[in-house]
């Protein structure tokens, strides 16, 4: 996902507990405040449920559960980061990016700034760090006030899907 020929990458950053995560802003369709979803009973725990987004059904993922950080609670700051589908990405020429075939929303604790970072600022997760064991964390960026963990949404969804319930 981190493509060297791109140089600068824009990131949509968000907060889970006190940690900062980010995904490539090109994969984001919109950020939504509507966190009330219809639970899909019996579904894997990281699927919070389904949401009607202007006539389209969005599968809402509990990003906290998916990353092993525990379930999210709904607060005033909670947001859904709605991802573009693979088809949408292909349509916009972002072939180097991938998310999911379905319309997916990531439930996060808070959406934060858009951060621009050059490719060489992105480091591999340090050996022995917790991030190293999180397959969907593709890299880390050192910010002035902390660490930004860069996620690959496709791996996040695929890996977790493979893990099953």
């Amino acid at each position: 996902m981190i493509d060297s020929h791109m140089g600068e990458i824009g990131f949509c950053s968000f907060r889970l507990d006190s940690e900062r995560y980010a995904i490539d802003i090109l994969t984001v369709q919109e950020v939504n405040k509507q966190c009330h979803v219809t639970p899909a009973m019996g579904a894997p725990s990281w699927v919070r449920g389904l949401l009607n987004l202007r006539g389209q059904v969005v599968t809402v993922i509990d990003t906290g559960v998916a990353l092993g950080l525990g379930p999210r609670e709904i607060t005033d700051a909670s947001r859904l980061v709605i991802l573009k589908t693979n088809a949408e990405l292909a349509l916009r020429g972002c072939d180097h990016l991938a998310t999911s075939e379905d319309l997916v929303g990531l439930h996060v604790d808070e959406v934060m700034d858009v951060i621009s970072s050059s490719v060489d600022q992105i480091d591999a997760p340090p050996a022995g760090s917790r991030e190293k064991d999180m397959p969907s964390v593709r890299g880390v960026v050192q910010l002035e006030d902390g660490v930004l963990r860069v996620l690959d949404p496709q791996i996040l969804l695929q890996f977790e899907a493979a893990k099953g319930n």
């Binding site: 899909a40 579904a43 894997p44 699927v47 599968t59 999911s100 969804l157 899907a161």
Partner: peptide
């Protein structure tokens, strides 16, 4: 049904 829910065979869709 979204692919992520394909394991939920008791649903026909939404």
């Amino acid at each position: 049904l979204a692919g992520l829910l394909s394991s939920c065979y008791w649903y026909a869709g939404s």
